[in-house]
């Protein structure tokens, strides 16, 4: 990881597809973010605990291991107060309406169907969301 300067934002990417995780990391770093990549919910939680700060989460639904993205969101929103405010961007190829509703109800920022979006569009949204000071 590059040196973190105080105003470099950190994005936690939770994605188990290696090539996709790489692409996302590259794009985010290119856009000036610091990136940590987790492939399971467990890994992601460890990062949350270990890292000084996480500013945004890029989350896929299907992950390695037993738990999926929904489980992760429920934990993030429930566990610690400082985690609750982290904006979560769900980027998945599953587009089940039920799942989308569930994510939105739990309070994620936005839900994207991977194949229908350009990667730079999603990165742009993350940048904008972090530019506005959170309430």
């Amino acid at each position: 990881m590059d040196t973190i300067s105080s105003d470099t934002k950190t994005v936690l990417v939770v994605e188990d597809e290696q090539p996709l995780a790489d692409a996302i990391r590259l794009k985010l770093e290119h856009s000036g973010f610091a990136v940590a990549v987790a492939r399971t919910v467990e890994q992601a939680l460890h990062y949350l605990e270990d890292l000084v700060k996480v500013d945004a989460i890029w989350l896929d639904h299907y992950l390695l291991g037993k738990e999926n993205g929904l489980d992760f969101v429920m934990m993030v929103k429930g566990e610690k107060a400082e985690w609750r405010h982290i904006p979560i961007f769900v980027v998945s190829n599953t587009a089940s309406i039920d799942k989308v509703h569930s994510y939105l109800q739990l309070g994620v920022q936005k839900y994207y169907v991977k194949a229908n979006y350009r990667i730079d569009e999603i990165v742009k949204d993350i940048t904008e969301a972090l530019a506005t000071p959170s309430a």
């Binding site: 996302i24 991977k114 194949a115 350009r118």
Partner: peptide, 11 residues
């Protein structure tokens, strides 16, 4: 099907 398509597309 969509996963590899996403990979190709984004890269």
């Amino acid at each position: 099907l969509r996963t590899p398509l996403s990979t190709i597309g984004w890269y």
